[in-house]
Design a binder for these strands. Structure first.
Length: 162
DNA sequence: CGTCTTTGACCCGCGC
DNA sequence: GCGCGGGTCAAAGACG
């Protein structure tokens, strides 16, 4: 475990470099967190009405995830609108070999935990930028280890670059 | 040198 | 009241 991922440290080009790392990852499912009803009891049927049916995002799209816009709320769909608190939760089921999906932000791992429901450990990431209350939870699917479930919590209060 | 990673332990909340 | 689970923080170490 000497090296992790070819991750851009300070400045990277969300054009060619990213393409090198992320040729194209398949966003299998897009979960929306409002209350707490996600793949919990009914699973797919629960979010089947709002999930993205096998949408393939190009590397450019990934860069636009956080680089172009601000957060997912203005880039994807209506994540907020009537959230009672201030902790937006968005979960993405991504098909990728690595769990460190580069969304244009720098994340610092602050904890790892083994969940009983999955043979895979759950990783906790936090935005390296001070003042950014954004937290990320990465967990591998217990059914399909080739899928990674990334849960974003909070909103970025700073631009990913510039 | 600075930054990030890793593991363990601790704490809190909830359930029974 | 106790137990379990989940989540977070901290320190040390390693690497670029």
């Amino acid at each position: 475990m000497a090296e992790r991922n070819p991750r851009p440290s300070s400045d990277y080009s969300p054009d060619s470099d990213l393409t090198s790392q992320w040729p194209n990852f398949e966003l299998s499912e897009y979960l929306e967190f409002d209350d707490n009803h996600w793949l919990d009891d009914d699973r797919e049927e629960s979010f089947a009405s709002k999930h993205v049916p096998n949408q393939v995002f190009q590397a450019n799209e990934v860069g636009d995830f956080g680089g172009g816009g601000s957060n997912f709320e203005g880039s994807s769909r209506t994540i907020d609108k009537n959230i009672k608190g201030a902790r937006e939760r968005v979960a993405f089921k991504t098909k990728s070999e690595v769990e460190i999906l580069n969304d244009g932000f720098k994340w610092r791992k602050y904890g790892k935990k083994m969940v009983k429901n999955s043979p895979n450990p759950r990783n906790y990431y936090r935005c390296s930028v001070e003042g950014c209350p954004v937290k990320k939870r990465v967990e591998r699917d217990n059914d399909d280890s080739r899928y990674v479930i990334t849960t974003y919590e909070g909103m970025h209060t700073h631009p990913s670059s510039c």
